[in-house]
Amino acid sequence: MTFKTCLRPILSATAISILALPALSEEIWVTNEKDDTISVIDVATLEVTRTIPTGERPRGITFSKDYSRVYICASDSDTVQVMDPETGKILHDLPSGEDPEQFVLHPNDRHLYIANEDDAVTTVVDTETRKVIAQINVGIEPEGMAVSPDGKIAITTSETTNMAHWIDTETRELFANTLVDSRPRHAEFAAGGSELWVSSEIGGTVTVFDVETQAEKGKIRFEVKGVHPDRVQPVGFEFTEDEKTVFIALGPSNHVAVVNAETLEVEKYILVGRRVWHMDFNTDKSLLFTTNGVSGDVTVIDVAKREPLKSIKVGRFPWGAALRP
């Protein structure tokens, strides 16, 4: 998920503590936008083991630091649901503003920054008091969300305004707005928090910003053989453990690009299912799971070999993916 970068140090700590527990198998949780469910994939068997009902149109999904709760953007229910991942029961709803699409959990494990797609606002919710603590006006159709590893900066990208909005998490005010190519979809901090990466779906690019100056320092373009450039539409992306490689979903081109995060060169295109959206790794990052919206399945990619391993049928229009170690 979006906040992976900032959770990385914590993740490895969690991984260690999990080793001490009785063998629990890892799972990938996938939200099915048009089925109002979550499909749970067992990483060991690569099969769906459970299907859990959610609110309407689930999209963004993320776990709390200790994995005791899972947060789900139920977009058409206008709420963020908090679920017990053990039982699959909804514990309570969080006020989220209208049409929450995507969110990111602050490193403090407490504040959720939520993009309200229909409302041109970013809502900050305290998951403990269950209260909205701020609403920040951003551009039209906010979607991509990221928080810097040090927790000082939150980013919202707005699809129709075509900007990355830089939010000071202390004052909860915008301190910069940078133009990107058309329809920015996803944002991630990289290189220890010194870079911000933003994908532009219609622009067909991924822009890399220097966080210090908010200046553009690089741009990735894609060229998939046999696919018209208009259909190469970068959406979600994830970095490998060493941050040297990034996997970028290219939407209706049905490919995932493997990009060298230092040279920004595309090294390979991997064929996956139709209209690939988002993705997440398993714990040791040897496997990558991509959600393919139109074909209703998840492609499992062998990260070392950079090859697709298997397709797993999930619900209708799978959107978000999150690891539960």
Binding site: A120, G139, I140, S158, T160, T161, N162, M163, H165, N177
Partner: peptide, 11 residues
């Protein structure tokens, strides 16, 4: 217009 104004507001 409303779409333009939002972007315009930032610029």
């Amino acid at each position: 217009l409303a779409d333009n104004k939002t972007t315009g507001g930032f610029m």
